[in-house]
Amino acid sequence: MALAMHVHPLDKHLRVKRLPTIFCSGCGIGIALSAMLRALDKRISEGSVNPNKVLWVSGIGCSGRAVLYLNYDVAHVLHGRAIPFAIGAVLANPELKAVVLGGDGDIAAIGGNHLIHAAKRNFDMVVVMITNFIYAMTGGQVAPTTPYGVYTTTTPAGNPEYPLNVIKLVGALNANYVARASVTTPHLIEQYFYKALAMRGFRFIEVVATCPEMFGRHIGLRDSVEMFSELKKRVVYRHRPSLEEAMIDWEKGIVIGEFVERNNPSFIELLRGVKK
């Protein structure tokens, strides 16, 4: 019994020597990552993705650390700059399939300008933004997605700002795919990422995640299971919702689904003169 080898079916996608991860108990990143790896595994086994051409790029933050466990070409670069790094890599070698993974601070605050312009260009990449409503790695400061009024370590009197709805922002641009899932719906993360991998142009998936350690602590949901259950209660799935419906409100509810699906020529196709 003790001699039995336990091999996880996703081990081949991981730098197993590096495990365990740094993530706190109750963190949603592991759920998101394993859902993405199941989707990638399917794409690889059906032959539609060459694992040697997959490139994972991340910036700084908890979500940024996730790529370091992946047994692929990976780059853990500057805070907010994963998108332009990946753009350079893909332009230099268009065979690369770039996946940018980051938190909402990395992607939508410090990296917000790059996000806007990559979406505007319909650039050939998948961006997965894990939204935990807080700056967790630095100790619980306010994030672009933090709900109004919430206490954080840099807004001790409550967050005076209304949060950024990144789905509406990216949806207003030229992205081919804009979807939101939650770590409480891992099958949807897997399904959306699987679909996104085979599409062209800019593909954006927001994954709403639990962070009991920082966000949960601030809003009185320090317990992992309780935090997960509370998020689950708030998540509402809609079939092909419009961008107007893309509500992300901790009090009123979080709408998940596929908001935008287009098949416009990608940036590289346009560079090469492809018009449709």
């Binding site: 670069v77 700059r81 790094f85 753009i87 890599a89 893909v90 230099a92 806007i116």
Partner: peptide, 26 residues
């Protein structure tokens, strides 16, 4: 070769570093 105008100098230099990692002199 490829020439691209980025949204700022920060994006430019980071793209150049990414391109170098993809094997291109940048």
């Amino acid at each position: 070769g490829v020439v691209v105008q980025m949204e700022d100098e920060i994006a430019s230099i980071n793209a150049v570093i990414g391109a170098s990692w993809a094997g291109a002199k940048a």
